[in-house]
Structures are given as structure tokens and as C-alpha cells.
Amino acid sequence: MQFVFLLEQVLNGLLVGAYYLLIALGLSLIFSLGGVVNLAHGGFYAIGAYLAVTLAPRIGFAGAFIASPLLVAMIGVVVERLFFRRFYRSDPILSLLLTFGLAMVIEQSLRLIFGAAPQPFSIPPELRGQVLVGDFIYPRYRLIIFAIALAAVSATWFVVYRTTFGRVVRAGVQNPDMVGALGISLQPYMTAIAALGIGLAGLAGVLLAPISGVHPAMGAEILTAAFVVVVIGGLGSFWGVILAAALVGVVRGVTIFINPSWGEASMYLLMALVLLVRPRGLLGERILRFE
């Protein structure tokens, strides 16, 4: 019986990993290409959720599901053009300061506009319900999130690994100067990647708004976990982030099963362990300019 219960936690951990993945993937993309550690990423996630709350009563949940990530991606374009762009070549500490400030501006703006109290928001009635597999229970909505996350990640993989666009991006990650020497300007690619990464955070915001509290600090809550995932997975590694997200979800679930008060601490212990054994992260690539 214990084993079955544990297995249920493991499978559930994989589902939870999907949320971490949506946030961590964008974080990893933006860092890999531009070297910007985007501490404001959680803020964009929160904006996605608040847009969903604001838009859903007007255009329905389905409409908000499409519109919010696009709007958040557009904000991403503006932020990249105005701010990120100035910091690609500078000391990482400067971009850290910038994005930390941006995160605070976003959180406080949400607090000023909407107040600190959580915004009421629910799963649309037609998406409610649970699926029973044997004795295992899965809320329908969580399975939908999982499917959408898989689709979004696959699409991102396709763009990065199977298109000309992606080839330039990957070349840019390894050697921006060489890409420049070949006569390709990386600027539009950077803008597109920032929009993609930030848009993914917006998508996560819309998807999670119905099942977690929509409040101004919701971004900060999930960002730490996303960072842990990126660090465990290894910078610049697409598969590393996926592997790490699943691992963090499972380790957290299993830890809560055994000793719940270690639930949130378990992912940091995992991170410390991975860094001790493999300082570059599980599947981290060797990126010359970060060595």
C-alpha cells in the first residue's frame, strides 16, 4: 500500500513539474542567449494571472487563455528593447539589479492597482471534475495544464532545434561574436527569444490562476523554484531544464509524503547535492563566455 501511495506521489510530482517547467524554460532561454538573469520573470507570471482575472469575465476563459500570454509577450518585447538590450554585454550584476528592481515595480504596481488581497478566480465549470485511474485521482484541469505545458515545450523545442531561426539562436548562445562576424544581427533574435520566454511565463500565469491564489507576490513564490530548476538542469540545456523540472516535482512530492515540513527545503537540498557533484548542472553545456 505504501508503495502505491508513493507511486501516486511520483506521478503527481511529474504533473507539478510541468508548471515549474513553463516558468523555468523561459528563464533558461533568456539567460542562455543574453546572459540576463531575469529576476522579474515571476512578475510576468503574475501579470499573466492578473490579465486572466481581468479578461476572463469579458472575453471568457478561452479568450483570456489566448490573449494574456500574447499581451505578456508584447510587454516582453518592450522590456527587451528598453532594458535587457543594454545589459547583454555588461557585468551580470547590473542585469540582476535591473531585473530585481523590475520585479519590485511589477509586484508593487499590481498591489497598487488590484490591492494585496487575492483576486477571486476559479476553474471554468466545464473544465472541473476529476479523472480516476484505478485508485489514483487526477483533476481534469491539472491534466489539461500538463497537456498544454507539453505542447508549449514541444513547440519551443521545435523553434529552437528545427528552424533556421533556432540555429542562429543556438549559435548566438555559443559565440555571439562569430554570429556577428557572419553578418547576422542578433538583436531581433534576442527580442524574439525574450518575447517567447516571457510569453511562456504569462501562459503559466493564466494556467495556474484558477488553482492558486492570485495575489501580487505570487511571482516571487514560484520564481525561486524555477531558478532551482534552471540551476539543477544546467544553463543552456533544453533537456536539462525538463529533466530538472520533473525531478524537482517528484522530489518535493515524495519528501512531503515522508516528512512534509521538509517539502520546500527538499528542492534546495537537491540543488546543493547536484552542484556538489556536477557544478555545471545535470546537462549543463559548456558556454565559453560564462566560464
Binding site: Y19, S212, M218
Partner: peptide, 20 residues
């Protein structure tokens, strides 16, 4: 009985334990 860290946003592992 389970202790829940204050920064926990996902309750699914706890809900599974309750159900079990």
C-alpha cells in the same frame, strides 16, 4: 497531521495524502 511551509503554493501532495 502535516506541517505545511508558509511558501507552499501547491497542495497536491498533501491532498493525495489526505485522500489516502
Amino acid at each position: 497531521e502535516d506541517l505545511v511551509p508558509t511558501d507552499s503554493a501547491d497542495f497536491s501532495p498533501y491532498l493525495l495524502k489526505i485522500r489516502q
